[in-house]
Amino acid sequence: MIEVRELTKTFGKTIAVDRLSFTVRPGRVTGFLGPNGAGKSTTMRLMLGLERPTAGHALIDGRPYRETGEPLRRVGALLDASYVHRGRSAYHHLLWLARSNRIPSARVKAVLEMVGLEGVARARCRTFSLGMLQRLGIAAAFLGDPPVLLLDEPVNGLDPEGVLWLRTLLKGLAAEGRTVLVSSHLMSEMALTADHLVVIGRGRLLADVGMAEFIERSRATSLEEAFLRITADATEHRAQPEPGR
C-alpha cells in the first residue's frame, strides 16, 4: 500500500505539491490524473525518494522508499523510459539492475520475453524507437516481480497492440492483489484500465474516488468530460479558439 500524507514540495516560491494526502490500495488499478503541471511527476518522484519533501511524507508498505532493502523486489517504477545507457544492450541494461538487487539473471530473459523484446535483447538501446524504450522501461519495472508498481505515462509510444497488452497486464496484476498506480493523460485508456482515480490540480487533491462515482458526481457521460469539468480551474495553459472563428 502507498500512503501519502500532507505531502508538500516547494521549489523556491513555487508550490509543486500542496498538502497532498491519499492512499493507493492493493487489488485495483489506481489512475493518477491531472493537467500538465499539476504535480503528478513530482509526487511520484517524492514517493521514490528522488526528491525530498518540504513537509509531509510518502510511505510504501509503511516505510519511506529510501529505507527499502533491494527496492526492485518491492517497488517497480517507470518514470522516464529514456533513462538508459544508450551504448548498452537491452539485456545488459536489465542485467546490471538485476545484479544490484540480487535478482536471478534468468529473470532478465523472462521480462524481455514478457514485453516482446527478446528478438532485440542484444541490440544497443541507441537503436530503439520510443515504443521499444517504453517496453524496456516496463521490463525494468517488472524485473523484481514487485508487489507495488508506479508507472508514469507507460503507454507513451506503444502501438495499439502494446496498449492492449499493458492494459490487460496491469488489470491482471491488480487482480493478484498488487498495488498499481498509473499516471496518464489518455482519458480513453484510463477509462478502460483504472478502477479508482486520484485527481490533482495545482498540487492539490481534487478527487479520490472510484471510476463510476467520479463520472456520476460530475454529471458527465465520459471520464474525459468529468476530468475537464473538475480540473477547469486548475489548468494553467488553456488553448483559445483562433480569433474570428
Results as ranks from 00 to 15, higher is better:
residue 91 Y to H: 12
residue 213 E to R: 09
residue 188 S to F: 09
residue 199 V to Y: 01
residue 38 A to G: 00
residue 232 A to Y: 09
residue 212 A to W: 04
residue 117 L to G: 01
residue 243 P to W: 01
residue 75 V to W: 02
residue 94 L to W: 02
residue 163 V to C: 00
residue 171 K to D: 08
residue 9 K to E: 06
residue 34 G to K: 04
residue 135 R to D: 08
residue 141 A to F: 13
residue 51 E to K: 05
residue 91 Y to K: 06
residue 108 V to F: 00
residue 202 R to F: 08
residue 74 R to T: 13
residue 141 A to V: 09
residue 39 G to W: 10
residue 244 G to F: 09
residue 41 S to P: 02
residue 18 D to S: 10
residue 114 M to Q: 14
residue 245 R to Y: 11
residue 120 V to Q: 12
residue 138 I to T: 01
residue 151 L to W: 14
residue 40 K to L: 03
residue 146 P to D: 06
residue 160 P to L: 02
residue 145 D to L: 11
residue 103 I to D: 07
residue 6 E to N: 15
residue 232 A to D: 14
residue 164 L to P: 00
residue 124 R to T: 06
residue 15 I to C: 09
residue 174 A to M: 05
residue 28 R to Y: 04
residue 6 E to A: 13
residue 143 L to C: 10
residue 241 P to E: 07
residue 31 G to Y: 13
residue 53 P to D: 13
residue 207 A to Y: 12
residue 201 G to N: 02
residue 119 G to C: 08
residue 169 L to W: 12
residue 110 A to L: 03
residue 193 T to L: 15
residue 115 V to G: 01
residue 122 R to C: 09
residue 179 T to Q: 06
residue 30 T to M: 11
residue 101 N to F: 05
residue 79 L to E: 06
residue 47 M to K: 01
residue 172 G to H: 02
residue 7 L to R: 05
residue 188 S to E: 15
residue 186 L to Q: 11
